[in-house]
């Protein structure tokens, strides 16, 4: 497969050793991207008695969590047990598995910056991309978004609200990139050479431990450029060859090993498990 290369390559380096799993990033992401809270009842459904309730937020197959923090375990018993938290946005793969399977070109990797786009008005909801993504980074709108009364007046201008029936995913808060470019133009700077921090995602912004660092992987003046090359840096299931633009770093060997756990020991038992928590 041909890899698309871009002059600018937005990427993340997530320090697993700094993530406490507090979840502020997940809330910040939902707010920035207009992901509605999960409500059971649909006030516009006038035959509620005849229909099922909408899904509960604890059913993680039906929630929309563009960024999800997974709980990792080293699989050992007390007292050798250790935990770690791993935030998982869309990996914005260099060689995405989701793009070629889309029958309507609603997702593509084609723009400077290398962000894999997802255009929901074009999406027909076939969910091939979800099946293709090994990172479970894509989500299907099983239900229409419903904000409890009054809550929809405070929507973010950053992201269009999606109806049910389409697939969506993390966009690296892409409209902030467009905003940053406008700011650069306004200030007379080159929009294709943004300084470190001029464009930052909502999750990276809000993270209290600054576990998420965001920037241009190709730009030596951006922190991520070096961080991604650190000796403890790794990517998830790297051996699949999808070339993710999200890097992780951890001094803990078991965490790094879990990151490439795909068939880690040839399918034998005893590999550490990661609880889907």
């Amino acid at each position: 497969m041909q890899m698309k290369e871009f002059k600018v390559k937005w990427g993340m380096v997530i320090d697993v050793d700094k993530c406490t799993g507090c979840g502020a990033c997940m809330v910040g992401c939902q707010v920035e991207n207009n992901i509605a809270p999960m409500t059971k009842k649909d006030p516009y459904n006038y035959v509620q008695a005849l229909t099922w309730d909408r899904d509960d937020a604890s059913n993680k197959l039906k929630t929309l969590t563009w960024l999800y923090v997974y709980e990792l375990s080293n699989g050992k018993s007390f007292p050798e047990h250790e935990t770690a938290y791993l935030p998982r946005p869309c990996m914005q793969c260099g060689n995405p598995a989701c793009v070629p399977v889309c029958p309507v070109v609603a997702t593509e990797k084609n723009e400077e910056g290398g962000i894999v786009s997802q255009v929901t008005p074009r999406c027909i909801g076939c969910r091939y991309c979800m099946a293709a993504c090994p990172y479970h980074a894509r989500y299907f709108n099983w239900w229409d978004p419903i904000w409890p009364e009054g809550m929809d007046k405070g929507l973010s201008p950053s992201t269009a609200v999606r109806p049910r029936g389409v697939v969506e995913k993390c966009s690296f808060c892409h409209s902030r990139y467009l905003d940053a470019k406008d700011q650069a133009r306004q200030d007379g700077n080159d929009p294709m050479d943004l300084p470190d921090g001029a464009y930052n995602t909502a999750c990276a912004d809000i993270c209290p431990t600054k576990a998420i660092t965001f920037g241009d992987l190709n730009n030596p003046e951006h922190k991520v450029h070096e961080l991604a090359k650190g000796k403890n840096a790794y990517r998830l299931i790297e051996k699949l060859g999808l070339d993710p633009q999200v890097y992780y770093t951890s001094e803990r060997e078991w965490v790094r090993k879990l990151g490439d756990n795909y068939n880690a020991d040839g399918g034998a038992h005893g590999a550490p498990s990661n609880s889907h928590g």
């Binding site: 786009s117 950053s158 892409h174």
Partner: peptide, 10 residues
């Protein structure tokens, strides 16, 4: 100019 989706969509 680019005609990628994310050039104009959000």
């Amino acid at each position: 100019q680019p005609n990628a989706c994310y050039t104009c969509h959000k």
